[in-house]
Simulated assay, not measured.
Amino acid sequence: MVETVPGDAAGDARPPEPLRASEAVLAAEVARRYYLAGESKVEIAGATGISRFKVARLLEAARTAGIVRIEIVEPEGVDGELSARLRRAYGLRRCVVVDRGDDAPRLRAHVGAAGADLLVDLVGPDDVLGLPWARTVSAMLEARPTLPRVPVVQLSGSMVIPGETSPVDMVRVAAGLTGGEAHVFYAPLILDDAESAAAMRRQAAVAAAMAEVDRVSVAVVSIGAWRAGHSTIHDAVDPAVRTAVSDTGAVGEALGVFVDAEGRAVHPELVDRMVTIDAERLRAVPEVVALATGSTKAAAVRAFLLGGWVGSLVTDRSLATVLVRAAGA
């Protein structure tokens, strides 16, 4: 992309006057020092014997005359412009839109890899990392991010899904990458009733691991839409429970935290049957990174963005496009 610089006068479409040969030589030298050598305008002024104001004018003239052309090359597989639009539209701190992959497994792999890169930038030696079970989060760990030595905390109980890893497995893999301590517990995510879930949460091993959640400073979540095939929790409960959740206005969930279309937390009876982080504790995590793929999840992801639950988002181009349009950006 070549940057075009307008003339000095607003609305002046006349071509700029060509630089004299001596000015062109000086403009090229100033540009080399500024853009290639990284010298400041004050340093260039001192070295060339001209004022810093003339340095600024020469830099502008060099760009206008085509001596300097600025080209921005997007990183491979990332849509930088769409990432910036989506970040601004929802007030995110960070946003990465992946522009590759044409089926669900490949999208998850690419979004997971981009999430791993983002995690490397986010996690420092004083952080505590929190992880749930999710296919995209699993893909993130498969990218093997190089992380500092930090503790890793399990955020939710397990669901038995053939061929899939459990949150215990994922936390241990992550702790193996960091070299830090793994805080895990063995408990199902969903129990038959609220009393059983409360008893499970009181068990010493579960309570000790869940107490570590309050220390989590960076959490990674995957957002599910409350519809068939787009939330493992939705698919694991019977139709009556699905309807009861829908009746609360829930459009999506993350870690069993349910939100309505405006991003407000709702509390269906199902929540009381779960062993997982609750809405208040998720809200208290300083940095929540969401991984999401597929435009069919747009309403759910938008809800979490509107509600301010997420500080960083990694997603694919199809979902990002729908989200930007929905924001009118």
Rank of each mutant, 00 (worst) to 15 (best):
T4N: 15
G11M: 10
R14K: 05
R20E: 15
R20L: 15
A21S: 14
A24N: 02
A24R: 13
E29I: 07
A31R: 04
R32F: 14
Y35G: 04
E43S: 11
G46P: 02
G49T: 12
S51T: 15
S51V: 09
V55E: 04
R57A: 15
R57Y: 09
A61D: 14
G66F: 10
I70M: 14
I72L: 14
I72G: 04
G77T: 08
E81P: 00
Y90F: 15
R93C: 12
V97L: 13
D99L: 11
D99F: 04
R100L: 12
A104P: 04
R106M: 14
A109K: 07
A109H: 06
V111T: 03
P125A: 12
L131I: 04
P132S: 11
R135Y: 03
V137I: 12
A139I: 01
L141E: 00
A143H: 07
T146R: 14
P148T: 05
R149W: 08
S156V: 15
I161W: 11
S166F: 09
P167E: 10
R172N: 06
F185K: 05
L191R: 12
A194W: 06
S196Q: 15
S196W: 11
S196I: 11
R201K: 14
V213E: 09
D214L: 02
V216C: 00
S217F: 01
V220C: 06
S222Q: 03
S222L: 00
I223S: 01
P239K: 08
V245G: 02
G249E: 08
A254C: 08
G256A: 14
F258H: 02
V259S: 00
G263H: 03
H267R: 15
R273H: 13
I277Q: 07
D278T: 09
L282S: 04
L282F: 09
A284E: 06
S295R: 12
T296Y: 03
K297V: 00
A299K: 03
F304E: 00
W309A: 00
L313Q: 08
L313N: 08
R325M: 10
A326R: 11
